[in-house]
């Protein structure tokens, strides 16, 4: 199978959907002529024109609200927010408007929009350009939340998100944009349903439940542990909302030992929710040890590269925590 990058996979998903649906438009800052701050939309302006690939002023609130209005009235919209940290500026339109639209108006309409935004640290962008804010949006009923970890997943999940009739927050990972992975040929119109976790590595001794960039780090840890004949299962939840609870519960029953890993600050992070899904279920009776979680330190992301690398879960910390568990 051919290999493309995570960024190319996202570009292909958007482009293919735009070719298939003339009612789909794409708006955001510098997505047109410039091709996106991370180059994700390269070539789309040229292919689809300024009517459908629309550069906007630096106005996250109205960009998001514009998508809500356009999507309520018959278009489908993809919004790119340049950094997920800027969700703070769009939050009224996302949390109060998009998410509640259907419910508060008695089911009259729907808001088929995807808000794409890259998150995560590791680029030296410091406090306001490096956060992982998925727990904020996962806490708002009415939104769906997706975080892909591979090019294959990114393409399949984004296509599904675009076809979904709800507002979907699609959180990309900056450090994964240039990573490559196998993706079927263009003609193969595959999609991946939201709410279906993926067992990225089968194992029997312990389970790591994670998502996003931490999937790749966890897989490296699992490969290393395999050398010591320890067999780690790695589950990529892929979407936080809806969440594939069954997959987590089954794996916990099988291995009896679970570690949750995410880059976001640990306190109030989505890991707490994942822990409860397991311990609230009958998997509790199969556990051989307390469920552990490992998140980022409860601090803003610092600038210095040496510091930055150490404040989120590293291979060494994941390995050490796993060994405690085992």
């Amino acid at each position: 199978m051919r290999e493309i990058t995570y960024a190319q996979a996202i570009n292909e998903a958007m482009s293919e959907e735009m070719r298939n649906d003339k009612n789909l438009i794409f708006i955001g800052e510098d997505i047109g002529i410039y091709g996106g701050a991370f180059g994700v939309s390269k070539g789309m302006f040229e292919e689809f024109g300024e009517k459908r690939v629309r550069d906007t002023p630096i106005s996250e609130l109205v960009i998001t609200g514009c998508a809500v209005g356009a999507s309520m009235t018959g278009l489908r919209t993809i919004v790119e927010i340049m950094f997920s940290d800027f969700l703070t500026l769009a939050m009224d339109q996302l949390a109060n408007q998009a998410a509640k639209n259907k419910f508060q108006f008695g089911g009259q309409g729907s808001v088929p929009m995807v808000l794409r935004a890259p998150g995560g640290s590791g680029t030296g962008a410091a406090e306001q350009h490096s956060q992982s804010l998925e727990a904020w949006v996962a806490h708002v009923p009415g939104l769906k939340v997706v975080i892909p970890s591979t090019p294959y997943d990114a393409k399949g999940l984004l296509k599904t998100a675009i076809r979904d009739n709800n507002p979907v927050v699609f959180l990309e990972q900056k450090l994964l944009y240039r990573t490559k992975g196998e993706v079927p040929e263009r003609e193969d119109d595959y999609i991946i349903p939201l709410g279906k976790a993926d067992v990225k590595r089968k194992g029997k001794d312990a389970t790591i439940v994670t998502y996003g960039r931490m999937v790749q780090i966890s897989l490296k840890v699992a490969d290393e542990m395999a050398k010591e004949v320890i067999d780690i299962e790695v589950i990529d939840i892929r979407s936080l909302v809806p969440l594939d609870k069954e997959c987590l519960i089954n794996s916990a029953k099988k291995t009896g030992k679970v570690l949750i890993v995410h880059e976001a600050c640990q306190t109030g992070g989505f890991g707490g929710e994942l822990v409860s899904v397991i311990v609230d279920s009958d998997a509790f009776f199969y556990l051989d040890a307390p469920v552990k979680r490992l998140g980022g330190l409860d601090i803003p992301i610092p600038y210095n590269p040496g510091l930055e690398a150490q404040v989120v879960p590293t291979e060494a910390r994941i390995t050490a925590t796993l060994k405690e568990l085992l």
Binding site: V62, T64, G65, G69, S71, T73, L75, Q97, Q104
Partner: peptide, 22 residues
């Protein structure tokens, strides 16, 4: 729709008008 957020309808209005223009 009416809106409980002061000014909340304004960004949405741009989208509705964009669809009409589109």
């Amino acid at each position: 729709g009416a809106n409980g957020i002061v000014g909340g309808g304004m960004p949405i209005a741009t989208g509705a008008a964009l669809k009409q223009q589109y």
